[in-house]
Amino acid sequence: MVGMAVQETGSVCRCADKISDSAGSGPGGQVVDEVSGIVREVMTKYRHHKGMLVHALQDVQRVLGYLPEDALRIVAEELDFPFAQVYGVASFYTQFYFSPRGKNILQVCVGTACHIRGAPAILGRFEQELGIKAEETTADFEFTLGAVSCVGCCGLAPVVVANERVVKKKDHHKIITRLRKQAEDSAVG
């Protein structure tokens, strides 16, 4: 049921904070059971279809926001793959993550054109404002900051992408505050 609810909201992850909270509860704990229920549900259509590993991983990540260890174990079991091999495949692709991601994904392009037009300074400011380094996630799981190489619109350099949308240059300094406010508003509403 939780799985359904999460799917409706698309790529936004709802489980991340729950899972990270569950660190102490160990196997058999309630939260892990919840994750396992979600993953098993996703996997029903892939059961024993070895050729569908990457698709299955994508689906699981779409629902959970990342690929936790317990989820990968279930994928391995359902597809009859060695666990190490599933991890090996997943680790090959940059699209898969093994730790929880923030609700907002903020990406700063550090490609050549953006670099020349001041990307390092923007990245530095974001790092300072969020209190994290590039490729990290804030402790409240609100933001993940990424440094990417070229998003394909060098004419707009320096480019910042927030949740898959390019942020206007004049809004760069406001984007974090704006995203925070959005989160607060939706929590109140």
Partner: peptide, 16 residues
């Protein structure tokens, strides 16, 4: 074991 990651960072290691 399996091969993990790719390119120059490829290594042979255990899951996670």
């Amino acid at each position: 074991f399996d091969f993990v990651s790719r390119g120059i960072t490829t290594r042979v290691t255990t899951a996670f």
